[in-house]
Nucleic acid binder design. Structure first.
Lengths: 126, 126
DNA sequence: TCTAATGCATAAGTTATTTATGTATGTTTG
DNA sequence: CAAACATACATAAATAACTTATGCATTAGA
């Protein structure tokens, strides 16, 4: 990513935006891998970007350390594969990871419910 | 709050819980003051605790610095009042604060929408 | 051929929050 | 009636997630 572009974007985003996503990264990764089965890091960033219509972009500096952490915790496993001359590290969710996802989803639902109570933004989910 | 009780609770909560609320504190405070008009710090903690059925407890170490920050940013104003011999600092939202709330709500709705897309937990909002 | 995209990585800095205190008054209870 | 608990403020140090800023290497496109 070009530096000037990053700078312009940061000014455009103008501080504070997406503070809210803090704390949800590991949950997103786990859930995504629980559904899609097997993904590599870069693919996760693109998938999340696409699903959120560009509103949430996972930075590499956040992603890769988190993948390593989840692997260290035994929630993910990794397989290295070569596509031509290029390396990919495919991550899969473990049995413990699947258990963890259940808890995370409960937490997330409770969080969203509480947020809606606190802010009652009358979100239309039709 | 007693230290032993705090300790037991932290073990019961067993790490990781409520990571999700990170980043939402200022939004909650602003929205609450935008609705209720005038509140003091301790009252905010109790209100949030009640609304979330005890699932989200604002710590004093987070609350007071945040109130000071929002005041410094011109989003809140403060009036000191004495109830008998006891001090209360009542906070109100400013005109700029109200503008800010609008943006925060937009962000929050977009955040929740994206989270539901990413995790599609099929939340029932009936 | 230069730039952008793909694909990994990590170290330093930022910042919101937790943890751990401190002070003081008012209320309940054994 | 003393101890514990609730109310009400405050702040400093530690933690942890994330951003920012790099670095390297391959492949695609203008």
């Amino acid at each position: 990513m070009h530096k000037l572009f990053m700078y312009v974007c940061s000014k455009f985003n103008s501080m504070g935006t997406n503070q809210l996503y803090k704390g949800s990264l590991s949950t997103i990764i786990l859930k995504l891998l629980g559904e899609k089965g097997r993904m590599y890091g870069y693919q996760i960033t693109q998938e999340v970007k696409a699903i959120s219509a560009g509103e949430y972009m996972i930075t590499e500096g956040a992603l890769y350390p988190m993948l390593h952490k989840l692997e260290a915790q035994g929630l993910l496993t990794v397989e290295i594969e070569m596509t031509g001359n290029r390396m990919r590290k495919y991550y899969s969710i473990t049995k413990n990871g699947k258990k963890e996802v259940v808890d995370r989803m409960t937490e997330m639902e409770s969080f969203i419910r509480n947020m809606q109570s606190l802010l009652n933004p009358k979100i239309d989910l039709a």
